[in-house]
Design a protein around this nucleic acid. Structure first.
Length: 641
RNA sequence: GCCAACGUAGCUCAGCCGGUAGAGCAACGGUUUCGUAAACCGUAGGUCGGGGGUUCAAGUCCCCCCGUUGGCUCCA
């Protein structure tokens, strides 16, 4: 504590005088206007504990769980509370790390036996007790040596390792009761501030994410500033469950996975295939319009091709074992690029021929570890909406702009918001500085030109080139990896991919790998969750269903069905002997966009009663008008070209 | 692959300390012919994920395997 008498603190535009060494907590108590639930503060831009003495003039800002930083502090303090409970209940537990994460926190422990669900309940109970005890949380500092000494004596090897990895001369610690943890802080003043939390799950996690190191037991939890907010968050988790594409996929009969056939392999049912086909047709049409040529390549390729491409060198652990064909090894392709390059290389290309864009819905197979498989989102066989652009260096900018505009169109067509990232050179890389500089600045320029916000993913590029990643947001605000455009300096070298320039010289082409949907499987999974199964009209597997009220209207319903089908509308009838309410209930459950109800009156008038999914009865319309309405609802997004 | 939990009818789930399997919905048959989110009656449906073991007796206890789920790692 410095010795000075009075300091001036500015709080929310108001200036107050205080004794030097006053704490934010003291200042807070003397304030009449203050936000609810202050748990920490920011002093001159630095995060501070409410109990930290202030000895200089400055600006003070309150932090509550509603501020991103305040939330982080809440999570962090809660994870300390959890660690305290764990060390009380399991005195031999070794502490690893316990950081806040996006929507909660976790702490890794090394314990003799993994935690059981009952353990979690007990830990949560103990946390509540300790919260009621309102144990004061005190900060103190130890020198590097003292800290090492302390943790060695306490037999906490992970903490010792952490300290050894840092250069800092001293480390801050927080003490609450008997529990002490090394931590940068800040933290809440006492455990009474931590009231609303829930432990969510227990999972194994390798120490420092390294599978060669010990597996620790991780407990995940979340916390909130109020009971209601915690409830809301837990409700959101429930909602996410309702949107789960695996559940909806089964309910709507879209696809299945079979133990008998092998995990991670998708079987598309008729209803799912209708959606996928619609997307694929849309995709092909759009690519053709934008100057792509559609190609097909075999699924099985000879070993030497993958040697040349470098896949056997760099990607073998993701490839399936080869099969012997006439004494030669063949591999199922994990990527489409080598095949497209072979097509390109069947001719000598003039600079005038470029750019050449080969697109393919190319199915690839990759080995994924069993524990990572997840419905449609992580599978072992999938179809990429792949394309490779071969161009001259001076065309790079136009090509990237074209790809960005295509991706933008696609994302809008499917109703996704998105965010772009420029992934720059990673630690391991190939090529030259000039190549990387030129390529990276070109990508940056293209991003600037969009006028949309974008971010840098430092070192996130691939070893063979920089890339732009597009992350999309779904209806719940979750992000998914969407389109990705990668520049490749590697394959053109390996395959000697050239064009003849205007000066008659051979020049190396610039190659762009790009996908705008990712893979059909993953994209469909995202779409299902985004729309909760209620696809927009143009994608719906069934767009319209005709519902006769009694058997007497069956011929009329069948006639409407026939007319709509003739107009390429995916129409069904529900001719079962059920009441209309029942049929409507089921049509709603099947998420059919338009329902046409036909009874005695409609036959007499040559009309139909129209009902839209999620809305009520829209009233009676002439058939002509109803068809027009259906056409509007099922309109395929128009290209912006 | 590793850690944990789970696997019972098409789906959602019950089945206690071991005594030989149950509900709702769906399906199927019949009755009913009905106006905007569930008509009524009936019928059928299960190698309890697979294999082995303990036991007079295993859905239940033990072991191995497979799959699923949540994580770790990785990724379209």
């Amino acid at each position: 504590m410095k010795d000075c008498d009075k300091i001036r603190i500015k709080i929310g535009g108001e200036s107050v005088e205080a004794d030097a060494g006053a704490t934010p907590l003291e200042l807070l108590q003397s304030q009449n206007k203050k936000p609810d639930g202050v748990i920490a503060a920011k002093f001159n831009g630095q995060l501070v504990d409410l109990k930290q003495s202030l000895c200089e003039n400055g600006d003070l800002e309150w932090l509550t769980p509603h501020d991103p930083e305040g939330k982080e502090i809440l999570f962090h303090s809660t994870t300390h509370l959890m660690a305290q409970a764990v060390t009380e209940l399991f005195p031999n537990a070794k502490l690893a790390i316990g950081p806040p994460i996006d929507e909660g926190f976790y702490y890794d422990f090394d314990v003799e036996k993994p935690f059981t669900p009952e353990d979690l309940e007990q830990i949560e109970e103990r946390m509540k007790e300790r919260s009621r005890d309102r144990i004061s949380v005190e900060r103190f500092t130890l020198s590097r040596e003292e800290a090492l000494d302390y943790y060695k004596k306490q037999n906490q090897p992970y903490k010792v390792e952490l300290i050894e990895d840092f250069e800092d001369p001293s480390f801050s610690f927080y003490k609450q009761g008997q529990f002490i943890d090394m931590c940068r802080g800040p933290h809440v003043p006492d455990t009474g501030y931590l009231k609303h939390f829930k432990l969510l799950q227990n999972a194994g996690a390798y120490w420092r994410g390294d599978e060669n190191r010990p597996m620790l037991q991780r407990i995940y939890g979340t916390a909130a500033g109020s009971k209601q907010e915690l409830k809301d968050y837990l409700k959101k988790l429930e909602e996410a469950k309702e949107r789960d594409h695996r559940r909806i996929g089964a309910d709507l009969d879209l696809y299945s996975i079979h133990e008998a056939a092998g995990p991670g392999l998708i079987f598309w049912h008729p209803q799912g295939s209708r959606v996928r086909n619609t997307i694929e047709t849309f995709w092909r049409d759009e690519h053709y319009k934008r100057g792509y040529e559609l190609v097909y390549i075999p699924h099985l390729l000879r070993e030497n091709l993958f040697q040349q491409s470098g896949h056997l060198e760099n990607y073998k652990e993701n490839m399936y074992s080869p099969m012997d064909i006439d004494g030669i090894d063949y591999y199922v392709k994990p990527m489409n690029c080598p095949g497209h390059i072979l097509i390109f290389k069947t001719h000598l290309h003039s600079y005038r021929d470029l750019p050449i864009r080969y697109a393919e819905l190319g199915t690839v197979y990759r080995y994924e570890r069993s524990g990572t498989l997840h419905g449609l989102l992580r599978v072992r066989g999938f179809t990429q909406d792949d394309a490779h652009i071969f161009c001259r260096p001076d065309q790079l900018e136009d090509e990237i702009n074209g790809v960005i505009s295509l991706a933008d169109f696609m994302m809008k067509a499917f109703g996704f918001e998105y965010e772009m990232y420029l992934a720059t050179r990673p630690e391991k890389w190939m090529g030259t500085d000039e190549m990387w500089d030129h390529a990276t600045s070109t990508l940056r320029g293209c991003l600037e030109k969009t006028g949309k916000p974008w971010k840098i993913d430092e070192g996130g590029g691939v070893f063979y080139g920089p890339k732009i990643d597009v992350k999309l947001f779904d209806a719940l605000g979750r992000t998914w990896q969407g389109p990705t455009f990668q520049l490749d300096f590697n394959l053109p070298e390996r395959f000697d991919v050239n064009y003849i320039d205007s000066d008659g010289e051979k020049k190396r082409v610039v190659m762009i790998h790009r996908t705008v949907l990712g893979s059909m499987e993953r994209f469909m999974g995202n779409l299902i969750e985004h729309y909760k199964g209620a696809f927009p009209g143009w994608l719906s597997p069934v767009q319209t269903v005709v519902l006769p009220i009694t058997d007497a209207q069956i011929p009329y319903a069948e006639d409407i069905n026939k007319q709509l089908r003739a107009q390429n509308i995916r129409c069904d009838t529900d001719l079962r002997n059920e009441k209309i309410g029942y049929k409507i209930r089921e049509a709603e459950a099947r998420k059919i966009p338009v329902m046409l109800v036909a009874g005695k009156r409609e036959i007499e008038e040559g009309t139909v009663s129209v009902r839209e999914r999620g809305k009520r009865d829209l009233g009676v319309m002439s058939l002509e008008k109803a068809f027009e309405h259906i056409k509007t609802v099922t309109q395929i997004p128009k290209s912006d070209l």
